[in-house]
């Protein structure tokens, strides 16, 4: 691992620049309606693409992953906050994991 530091510079440097350059250099407000619409929708699209299908496999067992998602969906739909929903999802997944462990 002698080239750890070179790797680190590439890893951290490229990640930083790809985030900071657009954020720092774009200061004017974008008027174009299509671009504004695109920027409005992109966060929801990114999060959805990250959830599906990776979340099914996040816990290592599809059953507990899906259980966590269902519990999360339920409470998110009921308007609960981020922390509440995140913890509820974990508990949902944990209960199914526990069940599978006991059985």
């Amino acid at each position: 691992m002698s080239d750890f530091w070179i790797y680190l510079v590439i890893l951290a440097g490229s990640t930083y620049l790809i985030r900071a350059i657009p954020f720092a250099l774009i200061s004017k407000s974008i008027k174009n309606r299509f671009v504004r619409s695109f920027l409005h929708y992109i966060p929801y699209a990114v999060l959805s693409a990250m959830i599906l299908p990776a979340s099914f496999y996040a816990t290592g067992t599809i059953a507990s992953g899906v259980a966590g998602l269902i519990v999360g969906f339920f409470f998110a739909y009921r308007g609960k906050g981020l922390t509440f929903v995140a913890i509820a999802s974990c508990i949902g997944a944990f209960l199914v994991e526990l069940l599978l462990y006991i059985l």
């Binding site: 999360g72 981020l82 995140a86 999802s89 974990c90 997944a93």
Partner: peptide, 8 residues
């Protein structure tokens, strides 16, 4: 699964 619950 926490991170996905948060996304939801």
């Amino acid at each position: 699964i926490a991170i996905y619950g948060m996304f939801l």
